[in-house]
Design a protein around this nucleic acid. Structure first.
Lengths: 227, 227
DNA sequence: CTGTTAGCGCCTTCAC
DNA sequence: GTGAAGGCGCTAACAG
């Protein structure tokens, strides 16, 4: 199997438009300092060639990875899957988060993690090292796992905690509706557009209790989302 | 937000083990030509430092991306999500595929695509250019879309067609059980470990009809999976 | 505002 | 069997 290279690269676009790689890059990243006419010229070249930047390359050059990591409890996920009753996690959160990501040019990658295992940190660290996500989303029972939130905080990776009310690092939001994940993702995206984490998990932990309160607010009377 | 670099790289491992980067790389990729003792030394250095290769970097240097792309029908997915009845796609296929991927060090990324739209090709091409997946998995109604299979075949990207019996490029397999996706993924992985594609979609197309046949075989009397 | 230079982390090709 | 050099595609510094 031949080594697969990118079909059309930024280089081709630059040649086609008769500008430097940098200018193309600037257009891609929608930077201000580009003359409108240049922008148009480059853009048309991009369209003509059907160019799409490689996220791997983008990430390699120190830019964003355009990847959001979502952590989900493994055992539970597998059990649900076997029982074919996994109407839980995916439909409520992952899909919502996925849609938000897609709308923003991001990709959501779901990672299954063993909670009741002291490997959690290692697993998380490995996933982060491999994927280098711009953000992470946590779901129960990971949302309040200090080992996880601590690691994320230390690495300065933006993350959201779904189904958690406790204050602390990261954005905490209760699942007051099916839009929670979407909300979470967008918050992360809005934050710094970098390192967003998402740990998705079954909603029958602390979460379930709050659910009875319906669309209630948090203890401060504000919508269920703390900064 | 500071430019995020990889914490521990192959370079650190090499230094720690007192060998060249190359040797470390060889150990990572499990290549034969490495003396057992060297292998052990390097491996322990890897463990000690908690090193995990960056898939972005791996992909950049012409290696695998360790990413499998799964295509799913967008509208349908969103509709299901809104109606909260999406017990369909994820639990049956995606989760299975996800598990298989995880077991093999791969990641499954789900991409929502508009089927009844002539943008399909563009969308697929864009996703491929951005992600550069090692393989793709197609699900109804994409499994038999010639625009999709054609593009994949032309680019020589291995792919599986779930819920499709028609012969042609790629691996076709019917969903004779909840293990279909898992099966599909493993086939792709087994293939050439490169470019695996997966287009997941609701199971109410041609698929539904076959389902009545239960775990039946295909018209050739073989298990429901053609090469 | 635009072009040039350097380098990200890793793997491939070629020497030793 | 191992090391050294080169480059993948892209962007972040610096010039001009």
């Amino acid at each position: 199997m031949a080594r697969r290279k990118q079909a059309v690269t930024i280089k081709h676009v630059a040649a086609e438009a008769g500008v430097s790689l940098q200018t193309v890059s600037r257009v891609i990243n929608n930077e201000a300092s580009v003359r409108p006419e240049m922008k148009v010229r480059v853009q048309s070249a991009i369209d003509k060639l059907g160019y799409v930047p490689s996220i791997a390359a983008q990430r390699m050059s120190g830019s964003r990875s355009y990847i959001i990591l979502a952590l989900n409890d493994r055992d539970r996920t597998i059990a649900d899957w076997r029982a074919r009753q996994g109407t839980d996690w995916v439909d409520q959160m992952l899909l919502g988060g996925m849609l938000s990501c897609a709308e923003n040019g991001y990709r959501l990658i779901i990672e299954l993690v063993d909670t009741h295992n002291d490997h959690v940190e290692r697993e998380l660290a490995a996933a982060i090292a491999a994927l280098q996500p711009d953000g992470v989303i946590l779901t129960p029972p990971h949302s309040d796992n200090p080992l996880i939130t601590g690691l994320l905080a230390k690495r300065q990776i933006p993350f959201a905690r779904i189904g958690s009310r406790s204050t602390g690092d990261g954005i905490a939001l209760t699942m007051d509706d099916e839009g929670a994940a979407q909300q979470a993702t967008q918050h992360l995206l809005a934050l710094g557009h970098r390192s967003i984490g998402f740990i998705a998990g079954p909603a029958d932990y602390q979460l379930s209790g709050w659910r009875g309160h319906g669309r209630s607010r948090d203890e401060h009377g504000r919508p269920a989302c703390h900064g």
